[in-house]
């Protein structure tokens, strides 16, 4: 056992990277759920985004095109969910689960020709002076663009929900869709946009795995990340900054347990392996003890006649 082998700076730097896919997918799902739509298809949208982004990046040679395609792919798949739940008034839980299964199958079909290919490398953002700073430079200023984009997205979603009129309307739709409808807001249109946003974010999260974190295409490569993202939203009590905290916690303990194992620490590996799930759940359960609740109309079907 040799704890000195673990470099805390590298540890924090890699936890930030490990948290990005969960963060992106969870923040998108948060917006969808705030509008009252429970979309359990995050895993399916992530994996679809992963292959769409990978294929586009390989074809075009540009990671940026890849990420755009991933967002488009995730959003396109989420429109299927929107059609099922908003137009045909199908059950949201069942539609979401179906979306996951469909996404997994679709992605392996799309990915047939892309196994074993390397994607174009994404540039890390090296800010000349800042990234040379000791400790802080490595932790904060030497990541790829998507890391900063995910932070900005969390801040933007938070500000949007809290301070803008559009954010207020979105929340009103999620709290009481009948009242919002009575006030003349287009409930279905607003929900459609929220779902598409959630799909685009999940797609980006998936592409982050296939283009940067792994980086390659293999079937089923998101390996349950979408479910983690779903859980993070609930435990974060639908609050953007807590989603960030939850994602870091999960990413952090995941990276830490690998480090402890490699350092040969004498804790049984099984406990280390379940620790990310346990600790994240525990901390967020404790934090969610305040009075914040799920959006009141979450998961309920809206029909203008009722």
């Amino acid at each position: 056992m040799d704890l000195s082998a673990i470099n805390p700076v590298l540890l924090v730097a890699s936890l930030i990277v490990a948290a990005v896919p969960f963060l992106l997918a969870a923040i998108g799902e948060l917006v969808a759920e705030k509008s009252g739509m429970l979309n359990l298809g995050v895993e399916g949208m992530m994996i679809t985004g992963a292959i769409c982004g990978f294929a586009a990046a390989v074809q075009s040679g540009s990671p940026l095109t890849g990420f755009l395609a991933a967002a488009a792919g995730g959003a396109a798949l989420s429109l299927l969910y929107a059609f099922l739940t908003l137009a045909t008034l199908a059950n949201q839980v069942a539609s979401g689960l179906a979306l996951t299964l469909f996404g997994l199958g679709l992605s392996s079909k799309l990915g047939r020709g892309y196994v074993g290919i390397k994607p174009p490398a994404s540039a890390t953002l090296d800010i000349p002076v800042l990234s040379d700073l000791p400790v802080v430079g490595r932790i904060l200023f030497s990541h790829d663009v998507m890391v900063y984009f995910s932070f900005a997205l969390v801040a933007a979603v938070w500000a949007f929900l809290k301070y803008t009129r559009a954010g207020l309307i979105l929340r009103a739709v999620g709290e009481n869709h009948d009242a919002a409808h009575a006030l003349g807001y287009k409930v279905k249109l607003i929900r459609l946009m929220a779902i598409a946003f959630g799909g685009a974010c999940a797609g980006l999260g998936g592409a982050y795995i296939s283009l940067i974190r792994v980086p390659q295409w293999t079937e089923g490569m998101t390996a349950g990340a979408g479910w983690i993202a779903l859980a993070l939203v609930v435990f974060a009590s639908w609050k953007p900054w807590r989603v960030l905290l939850g994602a870091w916690l999960f990413g952090g303990v995941t990276v830490l347990q690998l480090n402890l194992q490699a350092a040969g620490i004498a804790i049984p590996v099984e406990y280390l392996s379940i620790s990310p799930y346990l600790i994240t759940i525990l901390v967020l359960v404790v934090m969610s003890a305040d009075r914040s609740r799920a959006p009141a109309s979450l998961g309920r079907i809206f029909h203008a006649s009722q």
């Binding site: 490990a18 896919p21 390659q216 293999t218 995941t254």
Partner: peptide
């Protein structure tokens, strides 16, 4: 088989 975990 879990590419993300193996990469980590």
């Amino acid at each position: 088989f879990d590419p993300a975990k193996e990469a980590d």
